[in-house]
Amino acid sequence: MSAVRSYRSLALRYIAATALTILFLFPIYWLFMISFKTPDEIYSVPPTWVPANFQFKNYAVLFQDGDVTAVWNSFVVAGTSTVVAMFLGTLCAYSLARSRSGGAALANWIISQRMIPPIAVVFPIFLLYVWLGWVDTYGGVILLYTAFNLPYVIWMMRGYIMDIPIELEESALVDGCTQWQVLRRVAFPMARTGLFATAIFTFVFAWNDFIFALVLTRTEVTTYTVQVTHYFGGQSNFWAKISAMSVLGTLPVFIVVAAMQRYLVRGISLGAVKG
């Protein structure tokens, strides 16, 4: 009797889980499908669930017109700003964690910077960039993403570093390491999981950013998020291009997260213990 009941509850749970998964995955499925459809299929009523032929014309157009440069631009600004923010942020976090630089207040003040809404600062920064001539340059966008991600990196890495037993570092010092060697040979490998997890979040933030890129780029370093908006026209929307570009923009993040999932899950739970 109770065995039957437990089977039934298990079945119900699976059904609920499947239903939710379908619900959440449907928009992504639809996005991918549109990118392979012909214009007729896109507008057909009733909707075409699966395109008759998977054709890559929608993608080919993006390559022919050079629109994919936007994905490359996203990759350059997100990648570079992640590397720079991770490097500077980890050093800063180490100092905060181990030397108590600035006391507890400084760490709290730093994370508070992350809470500023981007829209509140984007126009002053735009005016500053115009004056400096940095609008629509890689350097300008990278600098802004780095600055915006640094508080997050510092805060997260500080927690991970505080989780490293100090004896491991002390024992390395006694064994003959310099402070730099301690960082490179003990602190970084020990905090590896946290480094990866933080880097992924940093990268994804910069990759997905829209508001900064919209205001600070024109034609030279347009990122893919801004590029997508160019396909929304006054008369009509280019759904084929929108979906193909969105897929191109989603895939890199999708691959990175899938590959690093192990670090992501462990990294998040590690950081949760100490803030």
Partner: peptide, 20 residues
């Protein structure tokens, strides 16, 4: 002098081995 210049070896309570 820094620890590394003192030519000392130390064994810690919790072993202090590098897990990686």
């Amino acid at each position: 002098m820094r620890p590394r210049e003192r030519n000392i070896a130390m064994v810690f309570q919790n072993y202090s081995l590098y897990p990686y």
